[in-house]
């Protein structure tokens, strides 16, 4: 009995969010005959990895009180590096992937080093990186989409008989690891503490700068993995990939209850945020509502999801 109570207690804070997700599923299932079926689930599972990787990194960055606007461009850079190495230089995916992820990680690390080292708001630094990395992508690809084909496609396609792709399983594993890092490791605890009160952390004798830089580098690394996920889904390295995706990533984090002021966040909840956004996108496309309505509905759902969560928190507190 105690265990049940304890479990429900742990689950309670997430119920509002899960409810929003289930309500969306229910709504689309009534509106479209074709929504509530296996193929839709597979299609959604197939599409979430890119954003999921980004959101793991973004959640950590937001928790330490930063923001990373460069994720879309870093994703594109890693995708471009992957494409050029695999096609122009005919490297194997296993040789090209570490380089691609490394390039994105370095981009993230540079974000962190400049922002933390010189005390410049990460908003500005990563805004700069957004442009720099996008430009670099166009240089690397000569502004042309690079078709890679089946050598990379398998990673983003459902495994035979398993419904989900390697990319999806990898993304889920990353979410779990991210959550464990945040809640169970010393560094995760420090991240939350830094976002809550950086000065108190300093006065507790903890050096936060290296950790913060590492978090930005991890965000870059996640962009690299997201780059792999997207490239494999498209079978192509697209220099225009993921423009504007940073806003979707931030929205997913915020829906998941991550504070833009730092100190509060949860990777699993951010992932539910991703699912909400994706279910919404897929559902609206299947129902076939007009483009204008799609945007309005998406905006409303983002705000309402955050609102429900805020109200639920307030209600449970009093």
């Amino acid at each position: 009995m105690n265990r049940l109570q304890g479990f429900l207690k742990q689950l309670a804070p997430h119920l509002g969010l899960v409810a929003v997700l289930l309500v969306l599923v229910a709504i689309f299932s009534t509106l479209s005959n074709n929504f509530f079926q296996m193929s839709t689930v597979i299609s959604i599972a197939n599409q979430v990895p890119d954003l999921t990787f980004l959101v793991v990194g973004m959640t950590l960055v937001l928790i330490i009180g930063g923001i990373d606007l460069s994720v879309g461009s870093l994703l594109a850079v890693s995708s471009a590096v992957l494409g050029v190495l695999m096609v122009n230089y005919e490297w194997s995916i296993w040789a090209a992937l570490p380089i691609a992820v490394l390039v994105a990680s370095i981009g993230g690390g540079v974000n962190g080093a400049i922002s933390i080292g010189f005390g410049i708001p990460s908003f500005i630094v990563t805004l700069g990186m957004l442009e720099i990395a996008r430009g670099a992508t166009k240089v690397v690809t000569d502004s042309k989409a690079i078709y890679i084909g089946s050598r990379i496609e398998w990673f983003g396609q459902p495994l035979p008989g398993a419904f989900v792709s390697p990319a999806f399983m990898f993304a889920i594993a990353t979410v779990v690891l991210g959550q464990l890092f945040l809640t169970r490791t010393v560094w995760g605890r420090y991240c939350i503490a830094i976002g809550t009160n950086a000065e108190a952390v300093r006065m507790s004798g903890i050096r936060s700068a290296p950790l913060c830089i590492a978090i930005f580098a991890i965000s870059g690394m996640m962009c690299g993995l997201a780059g792999l996920a997207q490239t494999s889904r498209l079978s192509t390295a697209d220099p225009n990939a993921a423009i504007g995706i940073e806003l979707a990533a931030i929205a997913a984090c915020v829906i998941g209850g991550t504070s833009l002021m730092g100190g509060r966040g949860n990777v699993i909840r951010s992932f539910i945020g991703v699912l909400i956004i994706q279910v919404l996108q897929t559902g609206l496309a299947q129902v076939g509502v007009s483009d204008a309505s799609k945007q309005i509905i998406t905006g409303v759902v983002i705000v309402v999801a955050v609102l429900i969560d805020a109200l639920r928190t307030r209600w449970s507190r009093s």
Binding site: I192, A193, T196, N197, E199, A200, V201, R202, M203, G263, R264
Partner: peptide, 8 residues
């Protein structure tokens, strides 16, 4: 201001 993490 510099001793505690109030929201933790």
């Amino acid at each position: 201001q510099n001793g505690l993490l109030l929201t933790q």
